[in-house]
């Protein structure tokens, strides 16, 4: 059984205008997204900004309410949880955000930040101070860091604090929202390795949100490529990089420097992504796609092209 099942997730943001806040339209940030994450797996959502990957993550984290769709965590519908059950869910699903200097309260010491989750769930009869030290050590920080404030740390150190805070409750799933994008390149690999080590040690699953395909290749088991609120291709990571199908995926891979010798076709897209307020009819990539043909005016569905490889394109 999978750990997390997302079924037909939809999130529309109403656009209001005028004095009375009349709704004049909807931004279709996420428009029918389904995927599942297995135990101890890393699932990556990739796409450019505005593709809806972060909105998907925020729905899963219950920071915003989805418009439609189901999110099942260990078989329970997350969108309907309340009170104690919601607390159980919060405890099992944590997150690490992009910029640790913004996601850590700047007025709390590191040791208090890391200890905070334990204090919220007081039922644990453990020594908080020792737990904090242990977890600082687990993420590779000396215990003296506990006395510091986040702004006195480097970006990499601060992100390690955020990670310690996220794992101290022993969650089953950790949502990583662009966890390395704000960091120096030299630090990125260290943090990614830390994620992989913790995954093995604590049997974690990750939902990785990123626009960086090299990060995906390094840590992820599965990849879903998103474009304008839809998943256009979903496959095992090796399979996707070996045998990309969707023109949008091809374009994304072509944009990585140093992939000249790739065996697949290089593709360039024309123009900018259209607004999610008024997405194109039919296939959403059609206006920009060099391979588009008549059939693309109809809406393609996500179909299994080969084993563990789904694609939403009329070419296949």
């Amino acid at each position: 059984m999978s750990l997390l099942d997302v079924r037909g997730l939809v999130k529309y943001f109403p656009v209001r205008k005028g004095v009375f806040g009349r709704v004049v339209g909807y931004v279709k940030a996420v428009d029918g997204v389904s995927f599942s994450i297995g135990e101890n797996e890393v699932f990556a959502l990739v796409g450019e900004s505005g593709s809806g990957k972060t909105t998907t993550a925020r729905c899963i984290l219950r920071l915003i309410e989805p418009t439609r769709g189901e999110i099942l965590f260990m078989g329970r519908d997350v969108t309907k949880l309340k009170g104690r059950e919601l607390k159980w869910y919060r405890r099992n699903v944590q997150a690490v955000f992009q910029n640790p200097f913004l996601s850590l309260n700047p007025r709390m010491k590191v040791k208090d930040l890391v200890a905070e989750p334990l204090k919220v769930y007081r039922d644990q009869a453990q020594d908080v101070e020792r737990a904090v030290e242990e977890h600082l050590e687990m993420v590779g920080l000396p215990r003296e860091v506990g006395e510091r404030y986040p702004l006195e740390l480097s970006g990499g150190q601060a992100q390690r604090v955020a990670i310690a805070k996220a794992i101290i409750l022993r969650p089953r799933l950790v949502v990583l929202d662009e966890p390395t994008s704000a960091l120096d390149v030299s630090v990125q690999a260290q943090i990614l390795n830390l994620f992989l080590d913790l995954k093995k040690e604590l049997k974690l699953s990750y939902l990785l949100i990123t626009h960086d395909l090299s990060v995906v290749k390094y840590v992820s088991d599965w990849v879903a490529v998103m474009y304008l609120g839809r998943i256009v291709e979903l496959a095992r990571t090796e399979e996707l990089f070996e045998n990309p199908l969707h023109p949008y995926t091809l374009a994304l891979l072509s944009s990585i420097p140093g992939t000249k010798k790739a065996k697949w076709k290089r593709i360039e897209l024309a123009g900018e992504p259209p607004s999610a307020l008024n997405p194109p009819k039919g296939c959403r990539l059609r206006p920009r796609c060099p391979l588009a043909f008549e059939k693309c005016h109809e809406e393609p569905q996500l179909v299994e092209y080969s084993k563990e490889h789904w694609v939403s394109c009329w070419l296949y």
């Binding site: 920071l63 309260n105 805070k165």
Partner: peptide, 24 residues
């Protein structure tokens, strides 16, 4: 984002207001 982090911990409204929002 740190207020989102606090919500993810399942902290109540009052705790978020006084411990995270007010001091900042």
């Amino acid at each position: 984002p740190f207020v989102d982090s606090a919500r993810l911990l399942g902290l109540g409204r009052l705790a978020i207001m006084f411990r995270h929002v007010l001091p900042n």
